[in-house]
Each structure stands twice: as C-alpha cells, then as structure tokens.
Design a protein around this nucleic acid. Structure first.
Lengths: 249, 249
DNA sequence: ACGGTACGGATTGTTGAGCAATCCGGCAAG
DNA sequence: CTTGCCGGATTGCTCAACAATCCGTACCGT
C-alpha cells in the first residue's frame, strides 16, 4: 500500500544497475551450520572416508565435529533423504550399503534420464555442450597423471553435464544425488583404476558425437556404456557379497 | 534392502514361510514423531490447507501440534528438501510459491521422464498397467460425483502410475515429490473443476493406448497432454501475478 | 548343551529452556 | 526522503535431562 509512491523511472534505473548482483546472492546467504555439516559428511562419505556400513553414532560425531546433537540430527535427516545414509529407528544412522537391486535401480533411471537428455541435445541450454567438453578434458588430464580418484569425480561430473542437456534444475538435482549414491558403489569395488580407466575414452567419444550433432549414435554409445558399467558393478558386488558371506561362515 | 545380520541358514529356512510378511513391515516400523509431523504438514500443504506463501512460525506450529521446536525443525528440513517449503535463513520457513520458471522446469522433467517411461511400457513390471487402469477408473468415478479435489489426486496418481512403468523406485520417489510440488500450483489456480475436468478423459485415452501396446501413439497423446497443461498453468500464473501486482500498485 | 528370559548398559527419541545472532518495523535526526 | 539506531520478535544452535528402545550377556529350567 505504501510503496506506490516510488517513481517508476527511478525504480527502473536502479533495477537495471543491480541486475548483475542477483546472481551473486547465493554466495552471501550462507545457510548455516547444518548445511555445512551435511556438506562435510556428504564429502566424507562420497570420498570414501566413511565406508558403507559405518555407524555414525550421534554423540561421537557431534563431539568430533563440535556441534550439538540436535543440529547433527537435522543434517542426518538431509543425508537420509538423499539416501546416502540409512536411518534405522532406535538403532542409529549408517552409511548406506548399496546392493545389487540398488545398482540395477540406479542404472535404469540413468538409462532413462541420460539417454532422453542426449536426445534433447538440439534444444539444450547454451553452454551445456561446452561444459561436457570441459569435463572430458579434465578427465583426460587426470587420467594422464594417474589420479584415478579425480578421474572418478570427472566421470560423475561428465554424466551430470549430460543430464544438464535436458535443462531442468530438478532433474539436475536428482541426478546429482543418484550419482553421489553411485559413488558409494564405486568405493565398494576393488581396483578403481581398472574400473575407471576405459570409460574416459568412451566419455570422450560420446562427447564428440554430441558435439557433432549425431545424437542417435551418441545415445547408442551411451546405452552401451551404461550397460557395460552396470554389468561390471553387478559382478563386482556379487564377488564382494560371496566373499563376505564366506568370511562370516 | 537386505538384512544380512540374520545367519544365512536361519534366513533361508524362515524366508520361505515369511516372505509374505515383508510387505507388511512398513506398517510396523513407525518411524517416529518427525516422520508423522512431515506427513501431516505435507498433507496440509498439498491439500491446500496452507496456501503458498504462508509462514510456518516454529513456536506457533510446534505448540499447535503439541511437539517440541527441535523435532519440528527436523520435519522442516525434510519438507525443505522436498521443495514444498522454502527455508530463508533467520527469517523462517514458508510454503513455497511456485513461479512460471518452476512450472516450466517441472514440465520439462515430466515430459522427459513420463514419455520415456511410456516408451518402456513393453518391459514394464507386472501390474503396472493394471494400476494405471485402476487409477483411471477411480478418476472417472470421482468425476461423476463432482468430487474435483479427488479428481486432482487421481490425476497425480495416474501420472505416478505412468512413471512406474519405468520400474525404478528412485524415479518413482522423485516424481512423487515433483507431482506434490505441482499440486501447489494447482491450488494457485482458479476454477479447479474447469482445469481438471478435460484431463480425466485424456487420461483414459492414454491408458487405453498403453494397454493396447500402441506406445508411439500413447507418447504422442501424453506429450500433447503435458503441453496443454503447462500452457494452461502458465497463463493461470501469469494472470495471478499481474493481478497481484495490480493490487500493489 | 539348548531355548527362553530377565537384567544392565548404551544409544536413540524427544522435550524444554536458554542465549546469541539476526531480522523487522518504527522513530528520530540529518 | 534518506539514514541510522533502537526494541521486540524470531530464528540458530546449544545443553541437559528423561523416556523408550535395543543389544549383549548372564541366568534359568530342562
């Protein structure tokens, strides 16, 4: 009611000058302790510092990170919602241990989403394909220096860039979560180098096809990629489970 | 998921007789207060009891629901992660007010996911198409009795059933969240009957095409459906925003 | 030995209160 | 009409406590 007095001219003059600042806002509004907590824990989990199955006792973690038990619980809720952690009532939270069903589920959603995103490459938002190329280059650089962990992150970022072709924030967020989960599976595998090494070349191939606009071929290559990776992860998990059951008996 | 704590021998002996009970488990393991809180609030929000923009003051809500402020905060984190609610630091949580950008984003992910799911109808999990038919019948029954709100829920469940054709739990969860968000948009529209009424017939048509295995035609009809709905929602939001800005000037 | 059971310790679930940090609205001064 | 400041209210986070639940273990009768 009271603001109708602002002259339209002055308002426009200001908005044009401040338009560039709206993008910088996310850097300012630091979300607070619990978001930072979740970041730390998420990083520790996806980086392998906290192997699947590890229990995260509230008292211990709260004291270790110097935060209250209640705030930590809020962070746990977030991670549980992202499925990086499972919350068993009255027992505690544990780093998730994905099983074969999870891997299959993850790869069916990846097949569906990533292939559809590539098919949409024509009407992709500007800069999306450039981002793909950049990530591929980073992966090749990391591979040349034998930094296999970085190769893994580059791989996941590559597929995030693929999904970004669809141009939907919600889709990006969802796949970022799924790929973080997938990283848990990577850490359950033996020989990460062996696993990641062949895919950097295939990623580059897919990127080239997308750049050249041969979307059908790109989709085919991507499908083959996903099938191979799924198969490999499933056999890896199978070996691991048989060996663990042997160790129990 | 797996409960590998049980000795393998005992597990096999029991699992044959108890396999039918695994489905009843979710009824037993009551997750606790915060999950119930989130359910209540989610229902209130999606049902329209808490219109977009409403502030949810911690003290007031906590007292109203007879729960501690800390527990309520945990529930808020969940809803914020589901984007039903926005969390502005040091200001509070508000029921989300989706804008035109949100509608466009939601519909691009819907187009991508739902169409791909229908294309996968051949290898859909058993019972998925039957579920679609059941939901369509429910929608028609509700429409015959002029229960437009129930028509809206049936519509969303219809599309959940469509997504279920893909056979991925993660995809189902994600789309359930997106559709709940979409419901917020519905509540911002005037004349819900007018909006929902034509779609019950189009849903039935799509269901018939899927049942008959004419997936290409089904995809086409679904695409047209989504485009029309998006257009309609966008104009509705545009009207609303202009009228609100008029009320300010 | 073996299945059942009761007990004790430890962890989680939830509460309530408290304090610092921050935001909002209004009021006074320039 | 802007600027700065103050008071009230709300949030962010902590702390301590208690109830509920789970786990391992020792105990029991057979």
């Amino acid at each position: 009611m009271t603001q109708e007095i602002i002259p339209a001219g002055k308002r426009l003059a200001l908005s044009s000058g401040l338009a560039g600042l709206s993008g910088a806002r996310p850097l300012l509004d630091r979300t607070g302790t619990v978001a930072r907590l979740a970041d730390i824990l998420r990083a520790q989990i996806t980086e392998g510092g906290l192997p699947p199955g590890t229990q995260l006792a509230e008292h211990a973690v709260a004291e270790a990170l110097g935060v209250s038990r209640n705030t930590l619980r809020e962070a746990f809720r977030l991670l549980a919602h992202e499925e990086l952690v499972v919350h068993e009532p009255h027992r505690g939270v544990f780093v998730r241990t994905p099983d074969a069903g999870d891997v299959r589920d993850i790869y069916t959603t990846r097949r569906l989403v990533e292939c559809a995103a590539v098919r949409n490459a024509d009407s992709a938002p500007s800069g999306a394909v450039a981002e793909i190329r950049a990530v591929v280059n980073a992966a090749q650089a990391a591979a040349a220096e034998q930094r296999w962990n970085d190769v893994g992150t580059a791989d996941l970022r590559f597929h995030s860039a693929i999904v970004a072709l669809a141009g939907s924030r919600r889709l990006n967020d969802m796949m970022r979560r799924v790929l973080a989960e997938l990283r848990l599976v990577f850490h359950m595998m033996a020989d990460p180098h062996r696993f990641h090494e062949p895919y950097v070349h295939r990623n580059a191939e897919i990127a080239a096809l997308v750049e050249r606009g041969e979307t059908d071929a790109a989709v085919g290559a991507l499908l083959a990629y996903l099938d191979d990776a799924e198969r490999q992860l499933l056999t890896g998990i199978a070996e691991r489970s048989t060996q663990s059951s042997e160790s129990i008996t």
